[in-house]
Design a protein around this nucleic acid. Structure first.
Lengths: 247, 247
DNA sequence: TAGTGGTCTAGACCACGGC
DNA sequence: CCGTGGTCTAGACCACTAC
């Protein structure tokens, strides 16, 4: 079984990256050099580099070269999303910031309306789109729909701070969060936002938060760079048992 | 700002897929037809198709053509991983099965040793590698390390059934699971196992299970096709509070 | 046998980064 | 200015699927 040439080349380079012959942030040989080294055409070299980019091992910068990618992820704990977010990030040596792109009342799409238990198709909620920055880089986009009275009352704080701490500080207790975690590919639009190649893996965290009265108060979706973020969670036997029936 | 031709072509096709002009599992025009339709070279057409494949919108089959991809994910609930797995799948209209590839005692790598609180560098644990099949398709690979006495006692059951139900049935109670969820790219090896293109997004679920005595009994990593699986979880305020200090 | 996609080539021109 | 990667072309040959 013969490997295609482009795979042969990319696997060879991959080995060198994995075993440390090529260090993180080190520059790969130029396309011209690789053509000579492997005796293949430029298209084949470029295909090999693309393979490595698709595997998240290499980043290329026009005019500069191709470089071995640094691999370091920030852990976002789902078990204490309420208050300690900034502290969590600081502990990991990362400065976090949010940048609000949109904050306005809107008529929500149907799936949001049902998640929030809204009866009327005309009731508005606050829509907030924000960019999550870690060490200054955009690593995620968050789209949250929040009940109108909350959005109005805490508008100022919500636009500059993380959502849960703001609610918490104002005495609004979140009792339960139902969430899903999945991954997708970056489309052209989001690949621009997050400065990643088209098709890069993204983590999608979709959540609905409830107060003690089982009243949903917000529903949101966070889309983050899969190469920069990771979620952690602690699951308990007792606490999870009773809830399954609601699903 | 002019889009590159390949992006122009792939975005045009993308619109047709999103708005339903091209239905799921429908065949795209052939490369030859697209060359004529857009007046571009074959390489550019192929680059456009690659863009769509990278975005998970299209699959290609040599000798047959390119087809709009079906999008349906199975939800794996983390809040009841203990007993109801098969039932969960059945409820979603999916038949699930596991296929054990490896089941043998080994000396675990250091990170597993520390996760399982093993003192000696010589103590062995059972290593199980298994393939997760949904409707017959391989969608995930699971690698689990389990304490030796458990592996030995329940060897037969463990090789044909899901891990947690087996332990549960034998009176071993899991009190707590610490887990992380992240995503990666398929490398060449795993892209063969899961029949996905190189670089496809994969979900990685990494977990350590503890009994009531705070004793870790198994540590595992499940790598699954991001286009076929999704995790759900319910987070509770009270139950999560006390645990944060352990992290 | 005809049609599809998969690999590979040589070569032209453009765009960006840095000297 | 040069070296880097980015886009695009025309064309050859191979491999798989179907009839």
């Amino acid at each position: 079984m013969h490997l295609p040439l482009h795979l042969f080349v990319s696997e060879r380079l991959r080995e060198q990256i994995i075993n440390g012959q090529l260090q993180p942030s080190e520059q790969l040989p130029s396309e011209h050099q690789l053509m000579a080294a492997f005796g293949v055409s430029r298209i084949t070299v470029r295909r090999a580099i693309t393979n490595l980019v698709n595997q998240g091992l290499v980043v290329v910068q026009q005019g500069k070269g191709a470089f071995v990618k640094e691999q370091r992820k920030v852990i976002h704990s789902l078990s204490n999303p309420l208050i300690f977010y900034e502290e969590d990030m600081a502990r990991q040596g990362v400065t976090s910031a949010i940048q609000t792109l949109v904050f306005e009342p809107v008529i929500p799409p149907p799936e949001v309306r049902s998640a929030l238990n809204l009866e009327s198709t005309r009731s508005k909620v606050y829509l907030q789109k924000k960019l999550l920055l870690l060490n200054g880089d955009p690593v995620g986009v968050d789209i949250t729909y929040i009940l109108p009275n909350l959005g109005k009352n805490y508008a100022k704080e919500l636009q500059t701070q993380m959502t849960f701490p703001v609610l918490e500080k104002n005495g609004i207790t979140i009792d339960r969060i139902e969430a899903t975690l999945e991954c997708t590919h970056a489309d052209h639009e989001i690949s621009q936002y997050l400065t990643v190649p088209l098709g890069s893996p993204l983590l999608v965290y979709c959540h609905t938060a409830y107060t003690v009265g089982n009243q949903p108060i917000l529903h949101g979706k966070a889309v983050s760079r899969g190469d920069r973020l990771c979620y952690s969670v602690v699951l308990h036997r007792n606490s999870n048992r009773g809830v399954d029936n609601h699903l």
